[in-house]
Write a protein that binds this DNA or RNA. Sequence first.
DNA 1: TAACTAAGTCCGTTCAGATTC
DNA 2: GGAATCTGAACGGACTTAGTT
Lengths: 351, 351
Amino acid sequence: MDDDISAPAAQPGETAVPALRRRATLKTVAHAAGVSPALASFALNGKPGVSPEKREEILRAARELGYQPDTLARELRTGKTAVHGLIVRNIANPYFNDVLAGMQEAAFEHDITVLAMDSEYSEDRERRHIRHLAARRVNSLAIAPVGSAHVVQEWLTLRPGARTVLINSSTHLGPGIPRVSPDGGRAVTMAFEHLRALGHQRIGFLTAPEALRSDEDRLTRFVELCREARAEPVVISAELQGAAITTAIVSALRSRPAPTAIITNSDFAAHYVYMAAHELELRIGDDLSIVGHDDLPTSQLLNPSLTTIAVDRRRLGREAFRRLFGAADGDYHGGVSLVARDSTRPPRPQP
Amino acid sequence: MDDDISAPAAQPGETAVPALRRRATLKTVAHAAGVSPALASFALNGKPGVSPEKREEILRAARELGYQPDTLARELRTGKTAVHGLIVRNIANPYFNDVLAGMQEAAFEHDITVLAMDSEYSEDRERRHIRHLAARRVNSLAIAPVGSAHVVQEWLTLRPGARTVLINSSTHLGPGIPRVSPDGGRAVTMAFEHLRALGHQRIGFLTAPEALRSDEDRLTRFVELCREARAEPVVISAELQGAAITTAIVSALRSRPAPTAIITNSDFAAHYVYMAAHELELRIGDDLSIVGHDDLPTSQLLNPSLTTIAVDRRRLGREAFRRLFGAADGDYHGGVSLVARDSTRPPRPQP
DNA sequence: TAACTAAGTCCGTTCAGATTC
DNA sequence: GGAATCTGAACGGACTTAGTT
């Protein structure tokens, strides 16, 4: 932070730069066109009250000088930034990568920048990011919050009235705060019924520990399904980060009676269930069925290929953007569909 | 862009907000502490020339008012932003995800924001992003450029003196512009020698078409290795985006004599080679060996598991940051190592 | 000298007012 | 006199220089 970018030190071995003329400002352009800065501003922003000749003149001058308005100054003055924030729980999960891509794609068309940050499942980081974005006066925020979105309250206080969208969270923060996520209830139902149809009785459900859980609705639905099916719900909770998943799954699989199938909340998490199975020398499919969620591009290439719930992730990103932009409102629950592959098979007959 | 975030419309059904007091500014704090804004600024920034009592008073007032300096205003005034730009070629590739994560991790410690954008292998988008970042006065830029980094010249013109780092590019833009990437020459050598040791004679090399190619050094090295081994270099070029890869590989595998092994420049690309093999009903490993690059977390879970070159991606992100920050300089070529798995086996004896 | 303040600066935007036909 | 053009100056919020007590 202590470097001075405005002093371009001449690199040794290079010829000194010939007193580079500074970036053109509005004043420069106005001067070149022989008008006041105010008029130049009107012309450049397509506002009325500028004669065709002057307008032409101003635009030409701007072009010749390579004028680019200074975003900072504009944003400071207008109080509106063309930046939307995005905070995700885990950027290592390619899922959020695609959500980000979808958001950026939509934002790009409107010349809006997306500023993405990763909370890494920490409320503390989440809070810091939120303050950061607020201090930047970011226009609006899409966030996949940790747990039940406590920290988002701070955002609402810091930037009252700013548009806010919750991604992949079942917390309801109020009517003005839409949620964008796959249809969690349906996803769980499809996974559950698929496994039941294959003959599974004892199904494990992987979820985050309560404090970090943001998809309570999935769990609720799972418990409900188990009750209807008169099966015991096996809830496995683990911090959804790499090794922690593997550990929790290993210990669940060692318990007796062990689940014969596991429903995860992401393909990313399912990868670590694969590792747990390898560790215990269980064959996936034959000894243990696994259902993922997201249908990442790699999932069909896994060994064995992963049964999962397909979701249009980029679409979610776009829908989040549309709500931040004001082009849509209300919740959006993306359609889901089951993709049956080789990681789910009938359970072995119990001895 | 036509929404007004400063007008927090009362949500229907909610009680009207009691004339929310505005965000505290420096002036507010100064007023509360009974001093001038100038002195408040000095105190808050730890500058000398403030008596201990006043300093205390000012800090207290700031705390009580929840004062957060306005980043935009500060950046406008000082001409330095605490934002570093990152432009990648393909954010869908989890490789860049990790580079971004590494950069953000390092930046977070210094309260610097990373603004990430995706050029999607398009110079046009790259250019637009660069202009965008320049207009934002982004402090410095790390970029994985498309092709031979032509567009980066514009950045250098727009923000002369700003620190710049090339990621995963073999283009040399000058002594002041360090490059951060895995050691491409070694990576290719390891892959090549591994395949030769297994007995492969005809090795294909997947690369981007010339205009989009940014790792010329890898190709050069490959050709050199082939010459030394008196083997014919089979260069397969394809736009490195999903389906295009599959198509190019399918057609290369249909040519006669067909290569028995393929070296790719990323695990991401290797995934699509898997798909091409599936399409032709070739068994990977037995009928066709594949070497990836990056060692993504999923690579060991693929069917069959992918032989690849391991790289510390987060480290690359951190090293890029250190150079942008001024904490390091000169090129950085990350160490690489071969991880032999099941996608590489001896070729079948030719009939 | 130490502590403090007034006023200018960064650069666009915008409003009230002035000029022209 | 009214509409169409155009300009001066204030403004956003923090930093910084020159100058005051």
